[in-house]
Each structure stands twice: as C-alpha cells, then as structure tokens.
C-alpha cells in the first residue's frame, strides 16, 4: 500500500508546488476593466504625467557637477531597461540594499553633486516613474546573492510579524485572505509590480514605502520612517515574493 501511495503523494506535492506560482495575482490582474483601461492607455494613465516629467529631468543638467542623468546613462530606453525590476539591489560600499529612490539620490549626491530629492517629492517620483517605466512587461528579477539573505530574512520576518494595536501581520491579509473583501476593498496579494503607483485614493503618484506606511497606520502601528532599513528589507522581500511577475509601472490602483 505504502509503496503505491508514496509516488502518488510525491506527484501531488510536485503538482501543488508547480501550481503555487501561478496562483499569484498582481493588482492589475484583480483590477476592474475601467482601472485596467486607464493604466493601459498612456493618454489616460495619470502616472504618465510623472513619467514625462521624469524624462525631462533625465536630460537636465543639475548640481555642482552640472551633469544630467543622460550624460552618464545615455538613452534610458536602452540603459534603464529592466533596472527597476532588479531593485532593491545590494550596495557593496554601504553593505546593504538600496531601493530605486535611494539609488537615484545616491547618483545625485555622488555624481551630480546635488542635494538628494525628498521622499515622495514630485521630482523623485518623476525620475523613479520614468526609470520604472523602462521595465514595463519585464519580469521582477531581484538578486538572490548571499549577502542579501539576511535582509530577505528580515523582510520576511517583518511581513509575518503581527503589529499595531490591531495586532495583524501583512501575511494574514495578503497571504491568507487575499481575494476577500475588507469592507468595500478587495484584498490584493500585495505584489509591488507597478510602483510608483497612481492610487485613486491618493489622487497622486506614490511610492511603495508610502503604501506600506498606509497599511501600517491602518493597523495602528508606528510606520517605518522613509528609507529605514526595515522598510527597505520589506520592499526587498515583497519583490522576491513577486519574482518573475511582470512589471507594470506606473500602475493605476484603487
């Protein structure tokens, strides 16, 4: 009996494991037809205004070095292709991962000799959206290198940790209860495929960190400061969790 059952169990396990990635749904996958149509049409997607602004900033010399992004990186359509899909990425000098916004600001301070752009400022969102736009349709492929493992572990731990006065973890909603209604809102799986996103609730473009802070405030938890190591670790874990899913920035979300 046992020798008959065992291969069956093994087969079932293999099928279950193989099926798991296909159960992933992005915010786009679960969105209604109006939101999808808005996202897909560049003239209707409000996020595109930031992309266009970002394109202008890309070519504009700035800082004491009087250099533009384009002076080093050239045509973003070529050089930035797939870059956003690989962030957060490890910075060997700082020995920690940086997210895309931090990487852009690092370029500003080190190479352009300019002031860093403030978190959630129009200019930082614009450059980030322009860079992220160049990864549209490309799969998320964050690095799996050894030095990033502790940050991945931290991100996972934070994702699964109950927090706030309401004592809930990210995982309890976005792993265990996705697809259900939280009052009037459909709970998504929480894949960061489209950041920065144009969120109808914000009437603005916003970063993944802003979105995480929203959720934490809802749980009555103390949100992570912008750029806090925990926030970056959580971003990194979310990107790893969405590995292989196509990028769709700038996404439109409810």
């Amino acid at each position: 009996m046992n020798f008959l059952l065992r291969p069956l169990v093994a087969l079932a396990t293999t099928i279950a494991l193989a099926a798991a990635p296909d159960e992933r749904r992005s915010g786009y996958d679960i969105a209604g037809p109006e939101i999808r149509a808005m996202q897909d049409d560049d003239t209707a997607n409000p996020g595109n205004l930031w992309v266009l602004q970002g394109e202008t900033l890309w070519g504009k010399p700035t800082g004491a070095a009087d250099r533009s992004c384009a002076d080093c990186h050239g045509d973003a359509q070529m050089t930035m292709k797939g870059v956003a899909a690989r962030y957060p990425a490890f910075d060997a000098v700082l020995a920690r991962p940086l997210d895309l916004e931090q990487r852009i600001n690092q370029c500003r301070t080190e190479h352009q000799k300019a002031e860093p752009l403030a978190w959630e400022s129009e200019d930082l969102l614009a450059v980030t959206a322009f860079v992220a736009r160049q990864s549209r349709g490309l799969p998320i492929t964050v690095s799996a290198s050894l030095e990033l493992r502790p940050f991945l572990a931290l991100g996972k731990q934070l994702f699964e940790q109950r927090e706030g006065q309401l004592n809930l973890s990210c995982s309890q909603c976005h792993d265990d209860n996705w697809g259900k209604q939280l009052a009037g809102n459909l709970i998504p799986q929480g894949h960061p495929t489209g950041y920065p996103i144009y969120r109808l609730q914000w009437q603005s473009l916003g970063s993944l960190q802003r979105r995480l802070r929203n959720c934490m405030t809802g749980l009555r938890a103390e949100p992570f400061e912008y750029g806090a190591p925990q926030a970056i670790a959580l971003e990194f874990y979310l990107m790893e969790r969405a590995r292989g899913m196509p990028m769709d920035a700038p996404a439109v979300r409810p």
Binding site: Q161, R162, E163, G164, Q165, L166, N167, L168, A221
Partner: peptide, 17 residues
C-alpha cells in the same frame, strides 16, 4: 485574524497615539 479588543500587553510597534 481577529484583533484583541481589550489587551495592551504583548503587542508590537503600536503607534504612539
């Protein structure tokens, strides 16, 4: 998933307020 409505101990990162 149900929050504890009358408990203050053993919670993490509760906002100041």
């Amino acid at each position: 998933t149900m929050p504890a409505y009358y408990r203050v101990e053993g919670l993490t990162r509760v906002a100041q307020a």
